[in-house]
Write a protein that binds this DNA or RNA. Structure first.
Length: 221
DNA sequence: CAGTCGATTCACT
DNA sequence: GTGAATCGACTGA
C-alpha cells in the first residue's frame, strides 16, 4: 500500500455531486471517521449499495419526498440515516445534485481504529471483521442514529462524521451484483459494490417477503 | 385510523 | 434454513 500524504484529506462536496453509480464504487477503500465523546472510530469502506433517486423502485425516495427521506432530496455530501425493523439504523451518503434524491447505503467496512468503542456497542461481534459486516451493524458499531440525519460529511474536521480520501479500491478489485434485501423491479440491477475477497463484506441475501401477521391467522380451510 | 411491512440481525433447528 | 424481535413510516379507506 502506498500511503500517500493525501490519504487523510477530507473528500470535498464535488466528489458526491456526481451520478450515484459513479460515486458508489468510488467510495470503496475510503475512510469514514465517526467522532464521539468517547473517541473516534475509523472505518475503511468495503461494501456499498447505490439507490438511484425517484426512478428507483428500491429507493426510499421512490414515492417522493417525505419527512423521513427529506435529506435525500437535499444537497450532496450529507448523511441520510433511517430507522428500520423497529431496532436498527442504516447510514447513507446523499449524492448527485440537489433535488435528485440519490444515495449510497454504507453496507460494510473494516474498523481501522477505535476497536474498543466499536466492541462496546457491538458486544456480539466475535472478531474485528464482524464489527461492521452489514449496514445495521456498521451503524451500530459507529453509534449512528437518527440524530445524525442530515449531518454534513464534507464539513468541519471536527464534525461527528466525515469521509477521508483513504486508499480508493482499484477498479479490478471491485465486484458488483444485485442489491441485498431489495425485491421487485429494484432487484435486477447490479448496484451493490464490494471489494473482492474482503472478509468484512456481508453475505448476499435475497429479498424475503414477510410472513403474514400472526394476529390475523388464516381461518377456514 | 388500523393494517402492513421494512435497504436487518440473531437465536435456534 | 426458518422465525422472532420490535416500532415507526407509509398507505389506503
Amino acid at each position: 500500500m502506498t500511503a500517500g500524504p493525501d490519504d487523510r484529506t477530507p473528500l470535498d462536496r464535488d466528489f458526491f455531486d456526481r451520478p450515484v453509480l459513479q460515486v458508489a464504487p468510488d467510495l470503496l477503500g475510503r475512510v469514514l471517521v465517526r467522532r464521539t465523546p468517547d473517541g473516534p472510530i475509523e472505518l475503511r469502506l468495503t461494501e456499498v449499495e447505490a439507490y438511484a433517486g425517484q426512478a428507483d423502485p428500491g429507493s426510499h425516495a421512490y414515492r417522493g419526498r417525505t419527512e423521513r427521506n427529506a435529506v435525500m432530496f437535499g444537497p450532496p455530501g450529507h448523511a441520510y440515516v433511517y430507522f428500520t425493523y423497529g431496532m436498527w439504523h442504516c447510514l447513507n451518503l446523499v449524492c448527485g445534485p440537489e433535488g435528485h434524491a440519490s444515495g449510497v447505503l454504507l453496507r460494510a467496512g473494516e474498523v481501522l481504529d477505535g476497536h474498543e468503542w466499536a466492541y462496546e456497542r457491538r458486544p456480539k461481534a466475535r472478531n474485528d471483521h464482524e464489527l461492521a459486516k452489514g449496514p445495521a451493524r456498521l451503524a451500530t458499531a459507529l453509534g449512528v442514529d437518527r440524530r445524525l440525519d442530515g449531518s454534513d460529511v464534507c464539513g468541519s474536521p471536527d464534525a461527528p462524521l466525515s469521509i477521508l480520501t483513504g486508499h480508493p479500491a482499484r477498479p479490478e478489485q471491485v465486484l458488483s451484483g444485485p442489491r441485498t434485501g431489495v425485491g421487485g423491479e429494484g432487484a435486477t440491477h447490479p448496484w451493490r459494490f464490494w471489494i473482492d475477497g474482503d472478509p468484512s463484506v456481508s453475505p448476499y441475501r435475497a429479498h424475503t417477503p414477510r410472513r403474514r401477521n400472526s394476529t390475523r391467522r388464516q381461518v377456514g380451510t
